[in-house]
Amino acid sequence: MKKILFLFLSVSFLMACQNSGKQAGTSEQEVVAVSVDSILSNPAVFADQSVVVSGMVAHVCTHGGQKLFLVSSNPEKYLRINTGKSIPEFPIALEGSTIEVKGVVSKFVEEGETEPAMEESQTDTTSKEHAYHKDNVYVIVADSYTEKTN
């Protein structure tokens, strides 16, 4: 009996470990310091680049803290930051703080969606939420962030 249980546990763990080797190799890339406005004005230029960007956090997603939005000089545009593999979540307490984010500018593709903002508008129905998600064709997938003193 013990052998069976041991065998079962071992097989389960081995199966679970199969997808562990899929790590994106971005550590060798040069990191470019950019402003929120410059990314928003022409995000395609920075596509797949590692960047460092600073800004004030306007909003942290309350559905799990997997994304936040940085304020730009255009009140209608926000830069969306997604958590990367090394960041479990963005705490709500970051709202109103200035943070420095290091990450990769990535084209935002939600699985099964052709329009990036569509899924968000269905779950976050307030007009303010809609404003945050507007035009988020490119996002920064954050590797790390630090909170600056306000």
Binding site: P75, E95, G96, S97, K128
Partner: peptide
């Protein structure tokens, strides 16, 4: 913490 203007008619204070 900080404040900003999400629009010409609104101020958000954190």
């Amino acid at each position: 913490k900080q404040y900003y203007f999400p629009s010409e008619n609104e101020v958000m204070i954190y």
